[in-house]
Nucleic acid binder design. Structure first.
Lengths: 288, 288
DNA sequence: CGCAGGCTGTCAAGATAATTTCGTTGATTA
DNA sequence: TAATCAACGAAATTATCTTGACAGCCTGCG
């Protein structure tokens, strides 16, 4: 291969042919590219958690004679990029990641995330995490046409962390039997963003009659269920697209998963370990 | 080495106290600042036409312990200047959105998102959108234990936008019948993040044998499927949690949905409207 | 179950870099 | 014309890096 390829290019080109340790290393190199590669081989190896020979092997695989040559190449690239007067830097400034549309989209998402966080009531997450960390309380989840995936994602994790978690299926016909089981200890997590769905509201009504605690994830305008909910998370969902973005909802979900996991950690540890044993058939890569 | 002034500042500050040889050296350092200072002391000394002890004496005069410290300082400066504007994200300092844990989590997510974008190969999104916008090509999706939800989310939208979209179920037992249908026109979208799953790799193998085009969403380290994939998206997934974050993957998914929607928009419009009519007539939602 | 082969770390030798020591140079001054 | 001293580099010394050789480990296969 010709010398004109950047280290980044070469890494990507060889991506498929890299061994696990080399991938690990590659990701460290990319992390602070290209300046990160300008320290001694020892330091780089340490940062990546691999041995120094592995670094050399990667350098060779990329077509260099040895590590010093790789480093020289990266230094040249760094120097080159510093010389270009205006930030022609890829990624954001302009151009590269495809269209301007993508940049606009990404910026809207960033904006949504910050604004969603800003708008959160201080105690809300804490309260929700507290409720979900109580293993005595059965948890039910349901979502709308689109947000069903979000409910599914939340369910997926919760159900591993703690017992008594139920995902209400897509078809409202089967909901009543679950509703029958609800009581004041029950927790119902609902997702309802615009194009608010009547069925969900009815579900919330019935659950409230049985005094279940309702946690609602909705959009900036607020689903009608707001009036019934004990805890409400308003996420910003508008992006330059025909579709709404549920990324802000996912952010909150993931944060809650982390928090709930922490709170129930002792009791959950054995649960998770048991599960992992069962999943052992799938190979593990590398614990951080 | 008390203060945190840049090397440039220190050189300027000491300008009057420099000896001729040091002045010479200083000017060489400034010529390709700060990257020029990142080679070995020998090379720098040669370039400046001075001896290596002179370099060390200058480093000490500037307040460093030795040459390596000076070099580390210059590397940090270079690295700092390389950071993309978005990533600085100093904003929301102390907006008390609850715990410090949450703030840390949110910051990690922001970092993940921007780094994921940084790392995207320029043409990738474009290429993927192009493939998915071709309504002649049947699309199949599948994911792992956790990422199944992401696949589901993508499926949910794609299936509304265009025909011939299939979500492969949770149980690998039923995959073979779908694989039988695949050919060189088929597109297989896979999600595989760490704790890479063997079943998915096998699926990819079989699909590749039938010459299907494979689109892979994986993590920063890269699933083994990378070697088989025609398009790869590497998302950063590490957060301060026991669980990995798939938010960056979702960002790309949503961006792709927006883009594909735009490309097929004319033909998709009638499709969506038809669907909405059906939803309206059966019952459920109201318009926002 | 045992073997083959790929992956990766340990170790030690050889190479290079960084620092110290010390002597030379040249300018300044008595 | 010495004597002094800062500036500087050559060479020696020490520290660190780079690389090759080798061995352990895991995985896949018969």
């Amino acid at each position: 291969m010709a010398k004109s390829f950047s280290v980044k290019d070469r890494l990507h080109e060889q991506a498929g042919a890299l061994t696990p340790a080399e991938r690990q290393l590659s990701s460290v190199l990319m992390r602070d590219y290209p300046v990160g590669g300008l320290q001694s081989i020892t330091r780089i190896a340490e940062a990546a958690g691999v041995s120094t020979p592995t670094v050399i092997r990667l350098a060779r695989k990329l077509g260099f004679d040895g590590f010093p040559e790789l480093q020289a190449a990266m230094r040249d690239e760094a120097s080159e990029q510093f010389k270009t007067p205006i930030r022609k830097r890829e990624g954001w400034g302009d151009t590269k990641p495809g269209s301007a549309a993508f940049t606009a989209f990404a910026e809207a998402v960033f904006d949504n995330l910050s604004r969603t966080i800003d708008r959160l009531e201080p105690g809300t997450l804490d309260a929700i995490a507290g409720v979900l960390a109580d293993r005595q309380r059965p948890v039910y989840l349901s979502g709308g046409r689109i947000t069903r995936s979000n409910a599914d994602y939340f369910y997926n994790h919760l159900q591993i962390i703690r017992p008594a978690v139920t995902l209400l299926g897509a078809s409202p016909n089967v909901w009543p039997q679950y509703i029958l089981d609800m009581d004041r200890a029950s927790v119902l997590i609902l997702f309802d963003i615009r194009r608010y769905e009547r069925d969900l509201e009815r579900l919330a009504d019935l659950a409230k009659e049985r005094e279940a605690e309702i946690i609602l994830f909705t959009d900036q305008w607020g689903s009608p269920i707001t009036r019934l909910a004990d805890h409400v998370v308003n996420a910003m969902i508008e992006v330059p697209s025909s579709w709404d973005s549920t990324l802000a909802i996912n952010l909150i979900i993931e944060a809650l998963i982390a928090e709930v996991q922490t709170r129930v950690s002792d009791s959950a540890r054995e649960r998770i370990e048991a599960l992992e044993d069962m999943f052992r058939s799938t190979r593990i890569f590398r614990k951080p």
